[in-house]
Amino acid sequence: MIRRYGNSPRRGQRHRLRPGAYALLVRDGRLLLTHQSRPEPEFQLPGGGIDAGENGLRALHREVFEETGWTIGNARWLGAYRRFAFMPEYGRWAEKLCHVWLARPIRRLSPPTEAHHSAHWASPPDAMELLADPGARAFLARFRALI
Rank of each mutant, 00 (worst) to 15 (best):
R4A: 15
Y5F: 15
R10W: 03
R11T: 06
R18S: 15
P19I: 07
L25W: 03
R27Y: 02
R27S: 12
D28T: 08
R38L: 14
E40L: 14
E40Y: 13
Q44L: 15
L45K: 01
P46K: 03
P46F: 08
G48R: 10
D51E: 14
G53S: 06
G56K: 02
G56W: 01
L57I: 11
A59W: 04
H61M: 12
H61C: 14
R62V: 10
E63C: 14
G69P: 02
T71W: 09
N74C: 10
W77N: 00
Y81R: 09
R82K: 13
F84D: 07
A85N: 06
F86I: 04
P88W: 06
Y90I: 13
Y90K: 09
W93M: 07
W93I: 01
W93K: 05
K96T: 08
L97K: 15
W101P: 00
R104A: 09
P105G: 10
R108V: 10
E114C: 13
E114F: 15
A115Y: 03
H116T: 01
H116A: 04
S118N: 02
P124I: 01
P124L: 09
P125H: 12
E129V: 05
G135E: 08
G135S: 05
R137P: 00
L140E: 04
R144F: 10
R144C: 15
